[in-house]
Nucleic acid binder design. Structure first.
Length: 646
RNA sequence: GCUGCUGUAGCUCAGGGGUAGAGCACUUCCUUGGUAAGGAAGAGGUCAUGGGUUCAAAUCCCAUCAGCAGCUCCA
């Protein structure tokens, strides 16, 4: 067999090599550096293991360790090594699965049944050390195919009962393959790096959790070990640092430290108390929100917190979401329910009178507080709660207005999110699912309108085919925060269900009654959650326009207190949030407390110099010392920062 | 909801079958000090709640509630 094959490289050049040449050999032939950085090879677009032979002509590309695909392979291989490590620590452990994942915190996990010897956090460093040893020993990953029977026998010998279940699920005719690394063997499609050493030193075992077998809440709980792997140690160190930073910015921690909010805890899980400082931030959020909505052509409405169950029956909420609605209360013999959504009320406003085509579109916005019974285990700080305020709006539009309205809403969403300091967005269009209500023609019209608006925005978007709700297609907008984490906040959603259920109509120019399109939209999502995101985004250091306290004047000594108080009072009179700290602490302690611990944007020192000249020695949290400013100059600076929301 | 872990002072946590400790914060006093912690004294807790075991429970057991991590879920 001396056949040669032609391999086309990304630069267009063609290499003739003997059939059966492996990716490793090819890489070595191209260059030493490339061979060293190689972790896999793309053959006709498919990522494969380097150690496998290539038998036919193909377009190939060496996958290096610093590419997304390369990292994926490294992480998958690291998962195997992690499983190997766990089995060294717990020889009777039974493996389930261990994929590389796309998660901001972790690169891979392995789900393992460790039996009655649970792993604890103290085991994580041990596992990491074992992984390092396995990597250092640089054993090859060896690929092997087996028949179904052979495969079952091998896994049965190893006591891998969960793997047997996996084998049973592999369709007939598909290859059943294994990767061996030393004594460790795992059922796996690959690809894997050629040997454990290629995983490199940028690895970590990070966290321990439970995960149900097959992701099914009714099934046995296995132990999930999370880890991460990067191209090099430096990237791993950076990632660890980022995790620490995220921990420091945890809104629950900052909520306590900065006295922003608390939750009712034993008096009501998932219910939020906004303390004065958090309440002030919310006040500014709402104030801005209202002002922009009024400018943006919305009308503001208010609706109740409860309504008779009939409303929720007609709307369909009771049928679909009864489990996540709070139990009813009896009012004069009628069953009343807390509202889980605002839309049925807005629909009632629509229905309160006959509507003419001349009056549409309606844009009705409400900061509407809703209650949803979220599962106890789902609750999380401000991010997932049982009572929250949606920045909700419903639009009722004529079919001919749909395009323009969607455009307008999308632009509005981006405007508001940018105002809060977010610059990066990820957008998603979700289209008609299998099960849906409404006229397919309307779906098509709406999806086309949504898509056009996305294209017009000039921002990249992805399409989630079939990912829409049963009642209409939607656009979701995710924001990226200062740590690069993404949060889904805004949503723009068509609804073909409610207009039908409540029989909404308008009288068209020809005298006919027609059905309006109805749109739901939220920009911030929930004020509670968005507040949580803001806290983490800014690390508690709110910009001047949102900060509950914008500046604190600090007296150096006892004799400067009166001056500090007087200037603070004057600034407050002019509408600024300014405090004076005339306590007995030394100036260093005051600065540490206000500027660094309480994260106030600005402090101003008042001593002999300042009293004499009628100035303030201002220091900005971000920009450092600003020198001597008059109270007027400080006011100007605050006003400018407030105006620009910088 | 599921699995595991946790619940001790306002916060962070130590302790642990014989009726409670530290640091920070707080109060008072001394100090009035010029840009990331001045000093001293004091006050503060039915050890989440309810049961059980025990001569004795904050400590061991069970249940409940709440919190944490993840899973599942999120109109």
């Amino acid at each position: 067999m001396n056949e040669t094959i032609k391999l086309t490289l990304p630069d267009g050049s063609v290499r003739e090599v003997p059939a059966g040449t492996t990716g490793l050999e090819l890489a070595a032939g191209i260059g030493k550096g490339l061979a060293k950085a190689a972790v896999a090879i793309k053959v006709d677009g498919h990522v494969r293991s380097l150690q496998l032979p290539i038998d036919t002509d193909a377009t190939v590309e060496i996958v290096t360790r610093d590419t997304p695909e390369g990292l994926h392979v490294i992480r998958h291989s690291a998962a195997h090594v992690l499983a190997d490590a766990v089995k060294r620590l717990r020889p009777h452990a039974k493996l389930w699965k261990g994929p590389a994942i796309d998660d901001p915190r972790f690169g891979f996990y392995y789900d393992i049944d460790v039996g009655d010897e649970p792993l604890s956090n103290e085991d994580l460093p041990k596992l990491e050390e074992l992984m390092r040893q396995i990597v250092a020993s640089d054993v090859p990953f060896v690929y092997e195919e087996r028949s179904r029977e052979d495969a079952k026998r091998l896994m049965a010998e190893h006591g891998e009962v969960y793997k047997l279940a996996t084998i049973a699920k592999i369709p007939d005719g598909e290859v059943i393959s294994f990767y061996h690394s030393g004594d460790f063997v795992d059922l796996c499609e690959g690809p894997h790096v050629p040997s454990t050493g290629r995983i490199g030193k940028g690895i970590a075992v990070l966290s321990l959790a439970g995960a149900h077998f097959e992701g099914d809440a009714g099934q046995k709980m296995l132990t999930r070990v999370y880890g991460h792997a990067f191209a090099d140690e430096k990237s791993m160190a950076e990632h660890r640092h980022k995790l620490e930073e995220a921990q420091k910015r945890d809104h629950r921690r900052l909520g306590i430290d900065l006295d922003l909010f608390s939750t009712m805890g034993e008096f009501g899980a998932g219910l939020v108390l906004w303390h004065p400082k958090g309440g002030f931030v919310r006040h500014k959020m709402e104030e801005f929100w209202r002002q922009e909505h009024l400018k943006g052509g919305y009308d503001i409405v208010y609706t109740p917190h409860v309504a008779r169950s009939d409303l929720w029956r007609t709307s369909g909420h009771l049928d679909f979401y009864a489990d996540s609605m709070f139990k009813g209360m009896d009012v004069d013999g009628a069953d009343y329910l807390l509202k889980p959504m605002n839309c049925p009320f807005h629909v009632q406003i629509y229905k309160s009178t006959r509507r003419s085509y001349r009056d549409l579109p309606f844009r009705w916005a409400e900061l509407g507080t809703v209650y949803r019974y979220e599962e106890a285990g789902a609750l999380h700080g401000l991010m997932r709660v049982r009572g929250f305020t949606q920045d909700d709006a419903h639009l009722f539009v004529r079919p001919d207005q749909l395009d323009a309205e969607i455009d307008r809403v999308l632009a509005f969403i981006l405007h508001i999110l940018r105002s809060f300091g977010f610059e990066q967005f990820e957008m998603n269009l979700s289209t008609k699912p299998e099960k849906s209500v409404g006229d397919p023609k309307d779906w098509a019209t709406a999806e086309a309108a949504l898509r056009k608006a996305l294209e017009k925005s000039g921002l990249p978007f992805e399409i989630d085919e079939g990912g829409g709700a049963f009642y209409g297609p939607k656009i979701d907008v995710k924001i990226r925060d200062s740590l690069g984490r993404s949060w889904q906040c805004s949503t723009l959603q068509l609804d073909f269900n409610l207009p039908e259920r409540f029989d909404l109509t308008f009288v068209d120019h020809d005298g006919e009654r027609r059905r309006p399109f109805m749109l739901h939209r939220a920009l911030l999502g929930s004020l509670e959650r968005f507040f949580g995101i803001l806290i983490e985004h800014f690390g508690g250091a709110f910009p001047v326009w949102l900060a509950p306290v914008q500046a604190v004047l600090l007296s150096v000594g006892e004799r400067h207190g009166a001056y500090a108080e007087k200037v603070a009072a004057e600034l407050r009179e002019r509408g600024f949030r300014v405090d004076a700290d005339c306590g007995a602490d030394k100036i260093g302690a005051k600065i540490r407390h206000h500027l660094w611990q309480q994260k106030v944007p600005m402090i101003a020192v008042c001593g002999d110099q300042e009293v004499e000249h009628g100035t303030l020695a201002v220091r900005d949290r971000r920009d450092g010392e600003l020198g001597a400013l008059t109270p007027d100059q400080l006011a100007e600076r605050l006003a400018e920062l407030e105006r620009t929301r910088a």
